[in-house]
Design a protein around this nucleic acid. Structure first.
Lengths: 186, 186
DNA sequence: CCCATATAGTTGAATCGTCAACACTTGCTA
DNA sequence: TAGCAAGTGTTGACGATTCAACTATATGGG
């Protein structure tokens, strides 16, 4: 499966082959932030980490969504919406709050909630406090489905991520990801 | 960080509210691997890491795909395909090889490559060695577009990930992700 | 050689997500 | 209090992905 030529397990790359490999000394080609200077390509180490990230995310997502769909007929985003609602007071939350916290577009959330509503897992209610707002409320059926789906999902998260890392590695992963892309929509 | 109201910045959760919070001592509820025993919920720390991961991935993906689309009219997957081809001998690779290394379904790859082909960025060629196979080959136009797109993309990867982490954090992230979901399709 | 099975790739329908346009409410300010 | 920008949410069209067939070639065993 793997010949002398190319590595088979590397994830997607960042730059085209032929780009000058970056020096390990940062800032040698571009020193003035905000200026359209030379490109600071990734070093070999950085690129290796980045590819591992991309490959890992793809595989993990693949594994988790397959499990969830097979096991409960839910997509990852539907599951996440249900979890958020299960935690909210009255199991109810504003559409915009859901959209923001899940990093979904408002449109996407509208469509997904519509599908969930059609399945009887969620209800829409008008928002007393704000005439523009709409509340999504989880039904008992929705909660029951979430309760049924959760064990398998948690098992999968453990199997593919939590239990394959040391506690230190998992904590480091969380800390690193917490520094990432701090709110794009701001 | 978790008050009566609700934290606004936490990512999607794993389990429904109301699930018994896991002890910090693992294995107390389920000791026999392979047995369908009690659910081992995530501890508070594990859940925090997991949520940070989900939120970070969502935001990073959002930022990178917006940049790439605005800047070059490419999706993340299209970009990744082009990078793979740019690295391959003769800028040519088997469809199945691409699909596997990018963790895409064969069907998805077929559709995406068809779109790229329609735009003149990629060509299909029959595979001499294997009558079933199809090679995807990058055109000069495809390479030119990749070269044009790469600087902005690399800048975004740096801005949102590489440059916000210490080298140690980035390396740790890569090492952790490399342990994840080792090939689902196997 | 022939059949069975596995691998490679495509197709079309259904589902899901994005994008731009729209309608409505709120809140500011003049 | 009229007017207008910003915030909320929906809609429909279009694009992208998934899923279940389906074709065709390769491989291995009688």
């Amino acid at each position: 499966m793997r010949e002398t030529s190319r590595s088979q397990e590397s994830g997607p790359a960042v730059m085209p082959a032929g780009a000058p490999a970056a020096e390990d000394v940062p800032g040698t080609t571009e020193d003035v932030p905000g200026t359209a200077g030379e490109v600071r390509w990734l070093t070999a180490e950085q690129q290796a980490s980045w590819r591992a990230y991309l490959l890992g995310v793809a595989r993990l997502t693949e594994a988790l969504s397959r499990e969830l769909d097979d096991d409960a007929g839910l997509s990852l985003s539907e599951y996440e919406i249900l979890v958020r609602l299960s935690e909210a007071p009255e199991r109810t939350a504003r559409m915009s709050e859901l959209a923001h916290s899940l990093v979904h577009s408002r449109s996407r959330l509208t469509h997904t909630v519509s599908r969930l509503e059609k399945r009887g897992l969620v209800e829409r209610r008008s928002c007393a406090a704000d005439g523009r707002g709409v509340n999504a409320a989880m039904t008992d059926e929705g909660y029951a489905l979430l309760v049924a789906a959760a064990p398998g999902h948690v098992r999968a998260v453990r199997e593919h991520l939590v239990d394959v890392l040391t506690p230190e590695q998992l904590a480091a992963l969380g800390e690193a990801m917490a520094l990432v892309a701090p709110d794009v929509t701001g």
